[in-house]
Design a protein around this nucleic acid. Structure first.
Length: 466
DNA sequence: GCATGATCATGC
DNA sequence: GCATGATCATGC
């Protein structure tokens, strides 16, 4: 295009005008704006954004580092939502922002960072991703401005500091998305030599990364936009301004360290038999009514509570279970898009630790934890691959002894970190009601089988909390 | 005492 | 009806 770029952008003289232009596209399909006949092939990843820029806003595509509507400080983002089984909308993926230039980012503070300069104010256009479609002619649902709430911004500032710290210390190769709460630094580009970048204070080339807003953070925004839904907050702006989230959680809970399970349940009026009693208890101790997983911070940072009970002899009695998997999903997923990879890659766990002394469990510690990336790759990946192989080949059942079904799934002796075991509320004798298998089991001919899940080994957990 | 399979209880 | 957290049962 030969028209001067600035002239075109200055067609928009106010933020309202940009928003109005965007909203006119609501309930229209992307293809209606495809003025340059770009490919709507699902694999043509960037074309949706380009079509929006050219066909809706009428400016030529660019890859400049400044915000898209630079004169007004607005950055345009076009992103996909998916419909969940309960009909709610959720992000298909994290919202990827600008690529980080490690050398430049090292020399600036938050106010002058590329993240803040470019993404202060976002115009987000949501479209509905449809799995069944074989092209990407999706429907645009809604366009909204995204401003960071003051409290969220404080958390994002400390996220940024964590990323910045690694860059400054020549540890960009060790950045992990799980380091942070809302703002992440996700890899961008193929894992190939061409997408490794120089970094300051280290000769090691680091994988190219971009800032991103985590899917969990964005999902809270989506809930606000589409359902006007908000969640109870655990910490206040004033608190988070001066302390880390983990510190504040610890500060709240340490008031109760040493109290027995019975004392705490009694103090907060929670039923002794409620299965979710630890979750409820934790919520009460943190000042939240109801489920702690529904609090603002837990939702946005994708934190899951896990209670760990340590016996008097210092061991843990049970391995840690996770939601059962769907056999058909496992065989259709590759490692990097598998549910289990995503679970460990994107979830932080709040371990609430009860230690048994004098015959009673007492609250003794809390720890915010995520599985180190190296452990996920080294220990969970082979378990996933083996599980996938067993199901794909129809070789789940090894033998039946006295009515007990023994499987070829990976057991707890495999690598001491992750294994596969049943996790079902029906029993094996009701296998006919179990989950459908993609391939009938060779030995038994079963076409359905008891639900199983990935478990984390208790000794591994014990090491992590020490 | 552990590995592994089986199942329970609650709450949504 | 089932997800989820939790625990039981058996055999080596």
């Amino acid at each position: 295009m030969s028209i001067n770029h600035e002239t075109i952008l200055n067609l928009y003289s106010s933020i309202e005008q940009i928003l109005e232009t965007a909203k006119k596209a609501n309930h229209h399909r992307i293809g209606e704006f495809n003025v340059n006949n770009r490919s709507l092939d699902k694999k043509a990843k960037g074309s949706i954004g380009q079509i929006v820029e050219e066909g809706i806003f009428r400016y030529p595509v660019n890859s400049r580092a400044e915000a898209d509507f630079n004169n007004l400080g607005v950055e345009l983002k076009v992103t996909g939502l998916k419909k969940l089984k309960n009909n709610h909308l959720a992000m298909k993926e994290r919202l990827v922002l600008n690529i980080i230039n490690y050398s430049e980012e090292a020399n600036v503070d938050f106010e002058h960072s590329s993240f803040w300069v470019k993404n202060k104010l976002l115009l987000i256009m949501f479209y509905l991703y449809e799995y069944e479609r074989n092209d990407s002619n999706y429907m645009i649902l809604e366009s909204v401005l995204h401003n960071f709430l003051p409290k969220d911004l404080e958390i994002i500032k400390s996220d940024w500091e964590i990323i910045h710290d690694k860059i400054v210390h020549g540890e960009a190769q060790n950045i992990s998305e799980a380091d942070t709460m809302y703002l992440g630094a996700c890899t961008k580009g193929a894992d190939a030599a061409s997408s490794y970048r120089k970094q300051p204070n280290s000769p090691i080339l680091a994988r190219q990364r971009a800032y991103c807003l985590k899917a969990s953070y964005m999902n809270s925004f989506v809930d606000k936009v589409f359902q006007n839904k908000t969640y109870d907050e655990i910490v206040s702006y004033d608190e988070i301004k001066n302390h880390s989230f983990e510190y504040l959680i610890r500060l709240r809970l340490c008031n109760y360290f040493g109290k027995t399970e019975a004392e705490l349940l009694n103090q907060f009026g929670i039923s002794k038999t409620a299965k979710s009693r630890f979750n409820l208890l934790c919520a009460k101790m943190l000042g939240i009514n109801g489920n702690i997983n529904d609090s603002d911070e837990f939702k946005k940072a994708n934190i899951e509570l896990k209670t760990i009970r340590v016996e008097e002899n210092g061991t843990i009695r049970e391995h840690m279970s996770f939601p059962h998997f769907v056999y058909k999903d496992i065989v259709n997923q590759d490692w990097e898009d598998s549910d289990i990879f995503n679970k460990f890659y994107s979830t932080k766990f709040l371990f609430v630790i009860f230690q048994k002394t004098n015959g009673e469990y007492r609250l003794s510690n809390v720890k915010l934890w995520n599985m180190p990336y190296q452990d996920i790759e080294k220990y969970v990946k082979p378990v996933f691959e083996q599980t996938k192989k067993v199901i794909t080949k129809g070789e789940i059942i090894k033998q039946i002894i006295n009515g007990k079904y023994f499987t070829n799934f990976v057991g707890s002796t495999f690598n001491g970190v992750c294994h596969v075991r049943p996790h079902d509320q029906k029993g094996i004798n009701k296998t006919q009601r179990g989950l459908e298998l993609p391939v009938a089991d060779k030995l038994t001919g079963l076409t359905r089988y008891t639900k199983h899940c990935f478990w984390l080994d208790k000794n591994y957990i014990l090491k992590q909390i020490k």
